[in-house]
Nucleic acid binder design. Structure first.
Lengths: 164, 164
DNA sequence: GAGAGATCGTTGCATTTGCAACAAAAGTCA
DNA sequence: TGACTTTTGTTGCAAATGCAACGATCTCTC
């Protein structure tokens, strides 16, 4: 054990602090304006891209566990932002989709989120952004090779092969 | 609102996923071997560096809120890893310090944590690590300039001025 | 087509979390 | 000194979390 060990220089800690700070900044907007939680936000974002999905789809895509998705969808349905349709085809699956109100809410909320991201990205030059992406993928790869790590739900679909 | 918005390409989300995965991987070790939570782990790490600190010190250093520190310390004290001394000087402050058992526990736990970090870092070359650090600091700086963002508890002490 | 096993979504429950309120102890200023 | 404000640490409480268990449905095999 070294006699100096500083959290501030410990990569996992630094990642956690930055990530939490960014997430909180992001959440302030959609939480204050629409009372959305992070889970609900992610569900809505996913629904924006697809027609109708199951709880399992959302779980895999948005990195949330089943109960979290289930409850988030329940709250969103109660709020009228989402509708659940059951039965078509596989009777276990639930077809979750956005309502018009949900789409409208996202139209209000998305710009603020993208603005936060834009400000973050604007601080980086092209090289830094490229390196950041590569680094994050490399760190994921280390965890992918570690049996003690939780597996990724969403593995990138063989990112563009034009890497130098 | 763009008609394509992918969580997987949204920086805040990507940061959150990576960070959570790393944190969980790290926690599996000290949680399984010593039943430590993340908050307890951070408290112990901080105590490793200083003699005796207050709840406030730990809160600022380890980015935890007061109740979390208070409860973490209470559990650690009950587990015999930490001792609380009161009254010397300012009667409100609590002097928290490691016991021998606490130091021993850290000696057992730290190597595993450092090993996880080492594996992560080994996937990066010097340039990538340097860029990662710079990028993270830049992202923090964006949030520092944003009134809606939660302030940093621990601002780097004017990092060493030997940057090229 | 009946039964074993897997999968899907929900619910229960104990624990944790975040936030506000609080008592106790300093600090402030007349 | 004595009221007022601030700071420190703890506690209460409603809400969220993680995990296991559950019923319902589908699949597979014989």
């Amino acid at each position: 054990m070294p006699d100096t060990f500083d959290l501030m220089e410990f990569l996992p800690y630094r990642l956690a602090i930055l990530s939490e700070r960014v997430s909180r900044r992001l959440a302030t907007d959609y939480e204050r304006t629409h009372g959305l939680t992070v889970a609900e936000w992610r569900v809505l974002v996913h629904l924006l891209r697809v027609e109708a999905v199951s709880v399992r789809d959302i779980r895999d895509y948005a990195n949330l566990d089943k109960p979290k998705v289930s409850r988030a969808v329940a709250r969103l349905e109660e709020a009228g932002l989402v509708k659940k349709r059951r039965g078509s085809g596989d009777g276990r699956l639930v077809a979750i989709s956005l309502t018009d109100a949900g789409r409208a809410a996202m139209a209000e909320v998305l710009p603020a989120a993208q603005d936060v991201e834009a400000r973050l990205l604007s601080a980086l030059n092209a090289t830094e952004l490229e390196t950041l992406s590569r680094v994050m993928e490399k760190l994921h790869a280390v965890l992918d090779a570690d049996p003690a790590a939780r597996p990724r739900t969403h593995v990138p679909a063989t990112e563009n092969p034009d890497q130098d």
